[in-house]
Amino acid sequence: MFEARLVEGSLLKKVMESIKDLLNEASWDCSGNGMCLQAMDSSHVALVSLMLKSDGFENYRCDRSISLGINLASMSKILKCASNDDIITIRAEDDADAITFMFESPKQDRVSDYEMKLMNLDTEHLGIPDTEYACVIKMPSGEFSRICRDLSVLGDSVIICCTKDGVRFSAKGDLGNGNIKLAQSANVDKEEEAVVVDMREAVTLTFSLRYLNFFTKAAPLSSQVSLSMSEDVPLMVEYKINDKEGDSKGYVRYYLAPKIED
């Protein structure tokens, strides 16, 4: 039997919003550690790897590791039936062919439950090599969303150039070209407003803005985003999910293959 009760139900709603436009279907791999999901988009250009840790749930029971094959569009529609302040409980029997979602209002005066058929998905698992990245940029997530949206008016690719002075985002197209330079923050009192560039060596890479704009759908999950880059390896965009005390409840990570000179 798998049962997980999330008091902050809005977290699961936001997680669904962060993946539903990129992926059609995926398996939630549930184990004692938590709920994980890893899947590539249909073109194999981007990969999502997310985790909701078991200790982020009010209670969490997983008798046996199970893999729940889900049509994400359907799950997203059902989660839209939950209010932002609802408590969400997910339940599935071990040999289940269905998953149930229960939404409870804070005053427990309104309880709804929805059952959804599961899918048989072959759980192809990708090995993501641990990488020592040449550059890791930490910045406000809203700032990154703004940059990706603004530069999309110029072209379909962004060149990200990271040096010790800071990071520059550039785009060009028929309309013209544009550059956005972010300086390394000096002493910022509020950490989540800082731009921090941890650079081992300078890196310049080109990525599709279409995919980056899918990734920024995760911005409501975290006030900060980190971009990890090395020459000729996929970009890793990570939104950490922390609770109010700052303890990690999980993460949403996106990987994006670069565009290179043909």
């Binding site: 250009v45 990708l126 090995g127 293959a257 565009k259």
Partner: peptide
């Protein structure tokens, strides 16, 4: 022109 790579050349199925 720049060509979009896929992840298949970077990540491998377990």
């Amino acid at each position: 022109t720049k060509v979009q790579k896929t992840l298949d050349t970077f990540f491998f199925f377990d």
